[in-house]
């Protein structure tokens, strides 16, 4: 962890968040690649654990980057990973929000939205499969994942119950 380059981390995360059209899960692979594969700041297992911890916390799911920052470098890490989350969202949101209030039915906006939507969905699907392969090591893990999918699609239950169930199966030593 001595080789941690906080400035580089900050800039890379900033660039990634500008690309995060359609939500934070689109850049999940990019963050995973930078932190685990390229710079070896965390192992695959550590990354998966920090990501999951953040899912259990209230607030936006993207807060896992804050947790990664805290784990790597304390408060400085929190700043280096959390500010990039805000900057593109704030600048572009205010700019586009302003334009959109003036010209609500501009064809450019509609073409952008319709064109980018499928790419966004493809990227979120990629994130989901990468996450699934990262966290699951045996058939029970995959079973929990698929049961979760089935329940979420059919029942309006609070996902916290599923997390509790997953924790119990984990404690039983099955995954």
């Amino acid at each position: 962890m001595d080789t941690l380059d906080l400035g580089g981390l900050f800039l890379h995360f900033l660039l990634l968040w500008f690309l995060a059209i359609g939500g934070p899960s689109t850049i999940f692979p990019g963050i995973h690649r930078y932190v685990v594969d390229v710079h070896h700041l965390l192992t695959n297992a550590q990354f998966a654990e920090l990501y999951t911890l953040a899912q259990v916390a209230p607030g936006p799911n993207a807060m896992y980057v804050t947790l990664i920052g805290w784990h790597l470098a304390g408060w400085k890490g929190v700043i280096a990973t959390t500010i990039p989350l805000l900057v593109p969202a704030a600048t572009l949101t205010l700019l586009v929000g302003h334009l959109n209030e003036r010209y609500p039915n501009a064809p450019t906006g509609r073409a952008l939205r319709r064109g980018l939507m499928p790419i966004t969905l493809g990227l979120v699907f990629a994130s989901a499969t990468i996450l699934m392969r990262t966290v699951n090591h045996n058939a029970y893990g995959y079973l929990i994942t698929f049961v979760t999918v089935a329940v979420v699609l059919r029942k309006p239950w609070n996902p916290l119950w599923l997390f509790a169930g997953g924790a119990l199966v984990g404690l039983a030593g099955l995954v």
């Binding site: 990501y51 899912q55 259990v56 996450l131 966290v135 698929f146 979760t148 984990g170 404690l171």
Partner: peptide, 10 residues
């Protein structure tokens, strides 16, 4: 956490 990670993926 391992069990909960599988839920998060789902």
């Amino acid at each position: 956490l391992a069990g909960m990670s599988s839920v998060a993926a789902g």
